[in-house]
């Protein structure tokens, strides 16, 4: 210890608590003891109240800090929840049934919706919510209700509606792979948000609505309600039949129009008879992926 440090020690050692301060303190403590004993007989909790009042300032600061931390956590949680629960792509699957899956930026299914009654029945059997898109498609493919509708003659169309080009691409690749694994025919394509909203307003999935519009353009005797009751196979068969008729009319305007009309009538009356699943893809959609 240096000389100055020794002097500091020496200086403070000379300081003693004055007798008057000690006596005043002892007196004050005894006073408090008397008050406490008196108040205890009337109000047992008064000494605790005294402590609570004294700690008020610190409690206020701790409370404020806790509130700030809680607010920050709520903010982080809110942003996290928004990122997780907000669908960034909608995947419509139309055969008949028609369903739609809302997929978030992490390719997790965060929304499921049956567009028609058959679609709702499928979703009741297959719990697709909060599964990865891949896993959801796998579960859907294994579900009996869905499997029954995708026999070899059926047509399945998958449409992706998203502003995210990259996500659209890889969801489409997964969609194409899913179609390949199924016994039916089909395609995966992109549709705009407007098409999606318009289709929903008519109670149809996007692919079914686009096929219905194609058919209505060819057959003005039908209504949108009529088209809503048809499966994708039936819609595509009828479109193909009308297209064949038109082609036949162009090739031999005098002789074979009756044959073409007969083909169209046959298609209109026999919904499951023709293997024409590949003859579609019109209606302004962009084909993506494989």
């Amino acid at each position: 210890m240096s000389f100055s440090e020794q002097q500091v020690r020496q200086a403070f050692e000379q300081l003693h608590a004055p007798r008057a301060a000690i006596d005043a303190t002892l007196q004050r403590i005894e006073q408090l003891r008397t008050q406490e004993e008196a108040s205890r007989s009337v109000e047992p909790a008064s000494s605790k109240d005294f402590r609570v009042i004294r700690s008020c300032g610190r409690t206020w600061r701790v409370g404020l800090a806790a509130a700030c931390v809680a607010l920050a956590l709520v903010g982080v949680l809110g942003v996290g929840c928004k990122l997780y629960f907000e669908p960034t792509a909608y995947v419509g699957i139309d055969v008949n049934p028609s369903i739609e899956l809302g997929v978030n930026r992490f390719d997790i299914v965060v929304e499921v919706r049956g567009i028609n009654e058959d679609g709702e029945a499928v979703l009741q059997q297959a719990p697709l919510l909060y599964r990865s898109f891949d896993e959801a498609l796998e579960l859907l493919g294994k579900s009996e209700a869905f499997r029954a509708s995708v026999e070899s003659a059926a047509v399945m169309e998958i449409t992706i509606s998203s502003d995210n080009e990259a996500q659209t691409q890889h969801l489409c690749i997964q969609g194409d792979r899913f179609i390949e694994e199924m016994p039916c025919h089909g395609t995966c394509s992109h549709a705009s948000d407007e098409d999606r909203h318009e289709a929903h307003s008519h109670g149809m999935g996007v692919a079914r609505y686009q096929a219905a519009r194609e058919l209505l353009a060819l057959d003005s005797s039908l209504t949108m309600e009529d088209c809503a009751a048809l499966s994708m196979r039936e819609l595509r068969d009828r479109i193909a039949a009308y297209e064949m008729t038109e082609t036949a009319d162009e090739e031999s305007p005098a002789g074979s129009s009756e044959e073409g009309e007969a083909a169209a009538d046959q298609a209109a009356g026999n919904h499951h008879g023709q293997g024409l699943g590949g003859g579609h893809g019109r209606g302004g959609r962009e084909r993506h992926g494989g």
């Binding site: 100055s4 002097q7 500091v8 200086a11 000379q14 300081l15 003693h16 004055p18």
Partner: peptide, 19 residues
């Protein structure tokens, strides 16, 4: 200090004040 050793102007007073 009560004994007068530490008083204003004394060395010990200055040292204590320094601390």
């Amino acid at each position: 200090s009560s004994d007068g050793v530490v008083q204003p102007g004394s060395v010990l007073f200055e040292v204590a004040e320094a601390l």
